[in-house]
């Protein structure tokens, strides 16, 4: 029986990282699925290996929740990434009327600047997922970023400060709705929603791989490969193999 995301919401005053915290306690004791942990003071939020998520107290919304998607094969896991990036994107559109988009594979961008990010860490036994910890970071009340970060916040684009705890409550239904599509393996519907919000989908963009080239994103497959069409045909790339310019 699935316990929905946010079945309990736990606030912790100060944490290194909400993902790390859930990972550590899940190794010590069995955790109920859906438990969500958040903090206003994340000391070293992690992006992917080594990248630091930059935030001051009360500015960024940082939370993680734990799932047991034992129905998912290891090579279906990219649908978690697609589903939760859609959920965060939809929330920011509906709540703040922001023109956000998903940048492949799963960053949330506003006018070319990062506004939210997702970090998913799974445990795999055999060919199936056993546990999944989903960490989400959204720049909410941040007033300034170092220029080189190319980041922005809700406050900088909507001129009102938000209550972080309220935002969690408001976002939970979006997360549960998208996760229910994963439980039902509604891949076509998830793909449709993902492409609807995907930055650069079927638009002419400039990329860099071996050299610079112009192309159009035509597909992101079930494993997460991106397919870019050029005059020479369609070629697929894995993460870090191709950059947006």
């Amino acid at each position: 029986m699935f316990n929905s995301i946010g079945s309990s919401v736990i606030k912790i005053d100060e944490l290194d990282s909400t993902n790390l915290y859930l990972q550590q306690i899940s190794k010590l004791q069995t955790m109920n699925e859906g438990v969500l942990v958040w903090t206003e003071r994340q000391l070293c939020g992690r992006g992917q290996q080594g990248n630091i998520w930059y935030s001051k107290e009360g500015e960024s919304l940082t939370f993680s929740f734990i799932l047991s998607p034992t129905f998912l094969m290891a090579d279906e896991q990219f649908y978690l990434s697609k589903a939760f990036s859609i959920a965060v994107n939809q929330y920011l559109v509906k709540k703040f009327q922001l023109k956000v988009q998903i940048k492949w594979p799963n960053d949330i961008l506003l006018n070319g600047k990062k506004i939210a990010g997702i970090l998913i860490e799974n445990n795999i036994l055999g060919n199936k997922l056993k546990q999944s910890i989903v960490g989400i970071g959204i720049n909410m009340n941040n007033q300034v970023f170092p220029e080189q970060l190319r980041a922005t916040s809700v406050l900088l684009n909507s001129a009102h400060k938000v209550d972080l705890r309220e935002c969690i409550d408001e976002m939970i239904p979006f997360l549960n709705e998208m996760y229910s599509l994963v439980i039902l393996k509604q891949w076509k519907e998830i793909d449709r929603l993902y492409f609807d919000s995907l930055y650069g989908y079927k638009k002419n963009l400039r990329f860099h791989s071996d050299g610079y080239f112009n192309g159009r994103i035509v597909r992101v497959d079930e494993v997460g490969y991106i397919y870019i069409e050029t005059d020479a045909g369609v070629k697929k790339y894995t993460f870090k193999e191709v950059m947006f310019c």
């Binding site: 992917q48 990434s81 799974n122």
Partner: peptide
């Protein structure tokens, strides 16, 4: 846990069976 496999920014701890 015997290793981690990263795929498209998802990190996977692989457990022995």
């Amino acid at each position: 846990v015997v290793c981690v496999i990263e795929a498209m920014k998802l990190f996977n701890e692989i457990e022995s069976e």
